[in-house]
Amino acid sequence: MSTLIEVEELKKYFPITGGVFKRKTADVRAVDGVSIGIVKGECFGLVGESGCGKTTFGKTLIRLYKPTAGSIYFNIPTNVREEIQKLRNSSQDSSRLKKLRKQHDLSIFKGKKLKRLRRKMQIVYQDPTTSLNPRMLVKDIVGEPLKVQGLTRGAERRKRVLEILNKVGLTERHLYRYPHEFSGGQRQRIAIARALVVLPEFVVLDEPTSSVDVSVRAQLLNLFQDLRKDLGLTYMFVSHDLSVVECISDRVGVMYLGKVVELAPTMELYREPLHPYAQALFASIPIPDPTKRKRRAPLKGEVPSPINPPRGCRFSPRCEKAIDICRREEPRLIDVRNGHFVACHLIS
């Protein structure tokens, strides 16, 4: 049960320019201080509504965006980890810390180091129609990562491409075709093949089943499970579909307005959410059982803008149980029992 990825106070802001000289007027605080750890081999579910920052977090994690602040450590040995922790806690601005960070902290990698990192982390997008280049053949789409990373040549590359295509359920016949000649489910398989051809360790799945039919959805979810076992992958499954996340994830984190508000093993979270937002979220899911109809909508109001998040706890304006401290101080994400983390003043 080793930690594969360790994230510390990750922030990603997008500047907004305004005025005649296009100066920065404000920031969209998409991810505003997230600290979590992802265990090797697990499927980590990340849920939340639109605008909460989950997609941005996933993409920042694999360095598609450059983080505004914070650190990301990928598969570093425990002793290095401990040393960094010690140095940080002593809050000395030591050169040793800087050196260690330069060596291990993903958030500041650049150039060749960053390129080599891409081999280990990949992403599968939501919409397979737009995530595949319509002017490229399947064999080129899936072969490109190998080519760019300089991993194989010629016949060897073709072999690898065929291997991975077979693993996702496609055959040699499909090599010389354009994406538009396939159905939605097949296109998503091509996208998965592209992500996995370099044999990464960590894959971010950004709502991979939202744009496909219900029947195809189940096929793809089964495929994800099989591939995880077969290739020893670690997933981060980002989605707004709570029922799908429930079935595939080992642990689930709930995000609201750029921060993680609750994080727990799936069964425990779905059975007993502790954070008021998580409670409202789960209570809002329509249940396919007409005897269990809801009387009222569990949550009123709308998500505030990430440009100017509320002071104190971000959920406090909409929280029915908010108390005085909630509006002043932001609660921290703490382990309340056995790996069940909550960021709420009422609980801690």
Partner: peptide
Amino acid sequence: ALLESIPRPGKEFKTIEGEV
């Protein structure tokens, strides 16, 4: 088949064979 394919935790995902 449609009702069976609703994802339920713990169980394997049931699919409807084939495509539309």
